[in-house]
């Protein structure tokens, strides 16, 4: 992509990725733009309603990670690094795990037992409401964040690095 000629403006670059390193054909990219948001939204839905319908943090997190993986496959590395890079997803990964532990620890702090359902104990159960299961939705959100970023991170690191043998040492180098 030639910035000086201005054949494409910056908005196009963020939308379509850098054409020099991009992955698949225009059709795949267009379809991806149409479906990526819905896949992510569906993942969020599965996470949020895990306590009422089948699914939960893990399944929803995998689906949400699927949308990022789809973007990586369709557009190559350029676009995904603007949305969620390696550092950002690693931070999210740790934050998800810490949030999960914090909810468990809050149970000790309030109710005396690790992972006790303190929200339900305090506010009672409200049938047919979003928080009818106490802190289980919160736990699902924490797991969802953790699983989403972890699965994406595994895919991303495998896709951007290559292991080469230098002398007697294996080294991970970034793919060009």
């Amino acid at each position: 992509m030639d910035k000086k000629n201005g054949s494409r403006n910056l908005q196009d670059e963020t939308r379509y990725g850098n054409p020099e390193i991009n992955g698949m054909s225009e059709i795949v990219k267009n379809v991806c733009i149409w479906v990526e948001g819905f896949i992510f939204l569906f993942g969020c839905y599965i996470v949020l309603f895990g306590h009422l319908t089948p699914g939960g943090g893990f399944a929803g997190g995998v689906i949400a990670a699927g949308s990022f993986i789809l973007i990586t496959l369709a557009f190559g590395r350029g676009r995904i690094e603007k949305i969620i890079g390696r550092r950002k997803s690693s931070i999210l990964d740790s934050l998800g795990a810490l949030m999960f532990l914090f909810i468990g620890w809050a149970g000790i702090y309030t109710g005396g037992v690790f992972f006790s359902n303190f929200i339900q104990k305090k506010f009672g159960s409200m049938p047919f409401r979003f928080l009818s299961a106490g802190n289980i939705p919160l736990i699902n959100i924490a797991i969802g964040i953790k699983v989403m970023s972890a699965i994406f991170l595994v895919f991303f690191v495998l896709s951007i690095t290559r292991v080469v043998l230098r002398g007697d040492k294996l080294e991970m180098v970034r793919k060009k």
Binding site: L95, A97, L98, W105, F114
Partner: peptide
Amino acid sequence: IPYFVIIPLAGAFIIVLLNHL
């Protein structure tokens, strides 16, 4: 009893977080 699992688990993820921050 649960602190035997909480402390190292939290420590592991806090260390990753500190490394990034």
